[in-house]
Design a protein around this nucleic acid. Structure first.
Lengths: 214, 214
DNA sequence: GTCTATAAAGAGATAGAC
DNA sequence: GTCTATCTCTTTATAGAC
């Protein structure tokens, strides 16, 4: 039993170390040796627990993205309930909030490095559809459908195709900011301020509302 | 003389092959062997002509980004001249056009695969500041400054910090679309239409105007 | 300038002892 | 479950023949 517990801990350490390194440098540029060194585990442990590097990548993605996806759907459902008490249409600001806020929530809940977690999420958003595990792609597809529908009702004057592109653009805003937001601070030498995540979230939502309603 | 000419051709083939592969899979995930195989050159040729893989990466980036940067500055200068004939303020739509259109122009001029070139540009935009050659970073920095200034004059009600973030978001729109625009077509199974680059450009500009003016 | 051959380092994976 | 030792493959880089 103690062995099983240790095993689970080792798995967890590997997952965390992998996520941190993947966030910083991407999936392919990180070696198992670096991961296991940081996780204070053995190279063989990865193959034992996950089956190989590719399986580890999938596990890390699923492990960290599922809570975000679940939270998104939950927030959207809550917003839908609120909307049903009036005209049934979710305001754009609430839909966007339901889409973007879960990152903050998961970030805050986990004790992990927030900036790294953000980068990791941004990286995944950028890679969606390329090599993501099937489970994640499916979840993602369902989510896109739900959110498109909600936005469509709030923005009836925007055609379906147009709306898809604008949602795609909004993904870009989020992915780019999650991945490279802190770099803006560097590049501008702090002239852009050093806002907390809540402030950045609000900025993104405001910007995307403007773009979606354009 | 004929050897020199052949040498230049080999260099060019290597640069093109590298750009194509980097666009598809990123810089670190592509090996020199793959590049030289596609370029029908020898592995040693890369080291002879460029000095190593890192130097090749820098050369590819500089080679393909400089025309875009130059064109951007030129278009902005032209817009400024037009503006000087009235109130001196460049309309947001023209600033955004000057920023985004050069990609199309360079794409169309080069005989290369347009979609690949777009991906390559998007990848560079995403990597700005991380490992880009100093030459490119400097150019980029100057460009950001010029465009921020132009937008600032057109949007006096938007604070400086706020504007920087909104410009950053606009970068995200462009980078994400260049890199993953075609994937939207796949994911939506064509429901988003299959617009040409000119149409997508217009959509991006409209969206970004909405966001910038929000 | 170009190529072959090879060096040197590092990758992922696995067998077998514990 | 974990770890050492090792296998095999691939990478970048370079020396030296042509």
């Amino acid at each position: 039993m103690s062995k099983i517990r240790n095993s689970e801990e080792t798995k967890e350490r590997i997952l965390c170390a992998a996520q941190s390194l993947f966030a910083q440098r991407g999936f392919e540029a990180v070696s198992l040796r670096e991961i296991t060194a940081e996780a204070e585990a053995n190279v063989a442990a990865v193959n034992y627990h996950f089956g190989g590097k590719d399986a580890l990548i999938d596990a890390v993605i699923v492990r960290h993205m599922m809570p975000v996806m679940t939270e998104r759907m939950k927030l959207l459902a809550v917003a839908q309930q609120r909307a049903d008490e009036s005209d049934g249409v979710i305001p754009v600001v609430e839909t966007l909030d339901a889409f973007m806020r879960p990152f903050l929530m998961v970030m805050n809940e986990s004790g992990e490095n927030k900036a790294l977690f953000a980068k990791f999420c941004g990286r995944i958003m950028s890679d969606v559809g390329s090599n993501l595990p099937a489970e994640a792609v499916e979840q993602f597809s369902i989510m896109v459908q739900k959110f498109t529908q909600a936005l469509s009702q709030a923005l009836p004057h925007v055609g379906q195709q147009e709306l898809m592109w604008r949602l795609h653009f909004s993904f870009g805003v989020m992915a780019h900011t999650l991945m490279h937001g802190e770099r803006l601070v560097e590049v501008t030498k702090g002239a852009c301020g050093e806002p907390d995540f809540e402030t950045t979230l609000k900025r993104m939502i405001d910007y995307c509302i403007g773009g979606l309603e354009a």
